[in-house]
């Protein structure tokens, strides 16, 4: 579903690359945690998938397409196939819950009938039945994030990108959000979630891709937040790079 082939992203020639020649593949229906410290390249990864930025080197494939070959007027079509959730929810404060979710359908020209039918269904999936007419400020953080998730998946995208969706939430609420994401994943949507939340990663036991300074440090199935593998102090290039970063 998402494939990176030796992808490099350099924002500024003078500093190190945000992503340094990384290669990885995420299959349809997978649930992947993207972990790593701030500045490790998680957000850059997500931006490249969305074609918000273009890679400096290498090729990014999304749903089988090389995104570099997607012309600018067809970028909206690519983004319709990708839902995005953020740490800060990004809801429209003057619209109700229903209108916030419906907005995502209105702007791509869905008919009123389909919107009336789909939005309540999605709100039920994320556990917000009965709150259609509330405004964002009347909701708790967890509920606001559920609205954001509902908006991200209402157009049935194949991929859901979540950039620290639980970053502003307490552990219990976060767990609720994870249940929703898991449910969406089990319905067939590929989920890529960038996070710092070790409890959640340890709880879920999904594939973990750890980035550090723009390179893939590890990529393990059913993994924990911290690596279980001992770091071998050998003179190979991988450990040399990470040792350099500690200075």
């Amino acid at each position: 579903m998402i494939r990176f082939d030796n992808v490099t992203k350099i924002y500024d020639q003078k500093t190190r690359p945000a992503l340094d020649s990384i290669s990885l593949e995420i299959d349809r229906g997978e649930f992947v945690f993207l972990v790593g410290a701030s500045g490790s390249g998680k957000s850059t990864f997500l931006r490249l998938v969305l074609k918000e930025d273009h890679a400096t080197g290498g090729i990014v494939y999304v749903a089988g397409q090389n995104v570099a070959n997607i012309s600018s007027w067809r970028v909206p079509k690519l983004r319709r196939g990708i839902g995005v959730v953020f740490q800060d929810f990004r809801l429209l404060p003057n619209k109700t819950v229903f209108a916030n979710v419906a907005f995502a359908m209105q702007v791509i020209g869905k008919s009123r009938g389909i919107i009336r039918e789909t939005v309540p269904e999605v709100l039920k999936t994320v556990g917000l039945e009965g709150k259609e007419n509330r405004r964002p400020h009347e909701l708790s953080g967890g509920e606001q994030q559920r609205v954001a998730i509902a908006r991200a998946v209402v157009n049935k995208p194949g991929i859901l990108l979540a950039d620290e969706p639980t970053g502003n939430l307490d552990p219990t609420t976060s767990l609720g959000i994870m249940k929703v994401l898991d449910k969406i994943n089990r319905n067939g949507t590929t989920v890529v979630m960038a996070t710092h939340d070790d409890d959640i990663v340890n709880e879920m036991r999904k594939r973990v891709i750890e980035l550090r300074n723009g390179v893939v440090l590890r990529d393990e199935a059913k993994a924990l937040y911290t690596s279980m593998m001992p770091i071998i102090p050998a003179a190979d290039s991988g450990s040399g790079r990470s040792a350099g970063a500690h200075k």
């Binding site: 969305l50 007027w73 983004r79 319709r80 990708i82 995502a104 791509i108 908006r151 991200a152 157009n155």
Partner: peptide, 9 residues
Amino acid sequence: IMRLVGASK
């Protein structure tokens, strides 16, 4: 938000 959900130009 329009950009993210793929609204056309």
